[in-house]
Design a protein around this nucleic acid. Sequence first.
DNA 1: ACTACTGCTGACAAGGTTGTCAACAGCGTG
DNA 2: CACGCTGTTGACAACCTTGTCAGCAGTAGT
Lengths: 212, 212
Amino acid sequence: MAKARKPPPRTRRTAEDARTAILDAAEQRLVDAGPSGIRLQDVAADVGISHPTVLHHFGSRDRLVDAVVKRRVHLMNQEVLLALVGAGADERSAVALFERLYAMFSTGGHARVAAFIALEGRVPGADPNSLLPLAEVTHKARLTHREDQPSFDDTYFTVLLAAFALFGEAIVGPIFRGDPEGAPDEATSKRFREWTARLVLDHFKRGGTPTE
Amino acid sequence: MAKARKPPPRTRRTAEDARTAILDAAEQRLVDAGPSGIRLQDVAADVGISHPTVLHHFGSRDRLVDAVVKRRVHLMNQEVLLALVGAGADERSAVALFERLYAMFSTGGHARVAAFIALEGRVPGADPNSLLPLAEVTHKARLTHREDQPSFDDTYFTVLLAAFALFGEAIVGPIFRGDPEGAPDEATSKRFREWTARLVLDHFKRGGTPTE
DNA sequence: ACTACTGCTGACAAGGTTGTCAACAGCGTG
DNA sequence: CACGCTGTTGACAACCTTGTCAGCAGTAGT
């Protein structure tokens, strides 16, 4: 009567596929719940494998988290750079660019991951993940649109400020604003993003702020 | 020979004092290592008591964390407001104000705590912890210095932007900037803060950015 | 088909965390 | 000085998490 429980069918992936699947699941949990959300059992369950398999592929939980972070940072840099190079210099383009970047930071989870990296001190080793290259690209574009020569610092700081605005709005916007928890004030958020886009564009077009 | 180990002297505090001491220790751990750093055993050890005592006073770990967060948010609001009302409208004052606020966010740990609150979704219930009151104070001050009437939105968003700049710089500044981990680039950070202070002040004095 | 390789697994170990409980011990009161 | 209130504690329970290990089971190469 009691049918001998047959062991569940064991699917076998390539090491590459398995690693990717595990990374995907772990990353999802990282975005949703933070690094403490990456529990081997849970990640394994998400993928449909047993937790020792995760250990088998990554050696330890710590190295798994490192791998997730590394992949994410790489993706983030790529996406941001891609969005930047394809942007125009008029107001409509600037606003659209900010919306795209904000979506990546907010919905895409980049902001949360960045915050986790910072808070846990889990900085991916020697990755050129700075805004400097982005600022250089931006500065070059800015110079072509103007006769006078604003300082690079001014461009760099503006890019930094814009990044902090998007990052901050994505992470603590509702909190700083005091939005009700269930219904973050998306309308105000959007107005803020647009206002910021215009401010930045305006600053780029107008003279630089006194840097000294 | 083996002296009977005498039980360590048991000091007895008022419930109030005990709660405060526990909150202090837990808060320190929250700032240093995040919410997951609040472990009952550790907190108890810091205070010099046993961990069931912590449970006795707070009921559960979760409620302890809530209490810590609540107290912190209250403190943060108070401190920021206090710094704001005592600030002048000239450039020197603006820069000084930004430095004070940055110190609170960075060294003081406000930024980290705010980030943890956001990431863990541990929003203190219905606390008027928004920037709105601050923006209102600022707007009122701004109006006295100008003839035309900039929109409140413009002031509000500027305050938000400034807050995000300080928050972002404190949390992810070194990461976004790509500073070497051991030696965050304090010089650049300071220049950025000063640049931001001037930008904000300049924006307040000059016309508002097109809000539509 | 046999075999080597390796992805994969159940069972178990070790350690750590929150929470419960009965009992102990200061301290103010009658 | 006895008594009650309550801050405090050691011991224990229940649970969870990471990590190890010997062995099972797909898959490719011969």
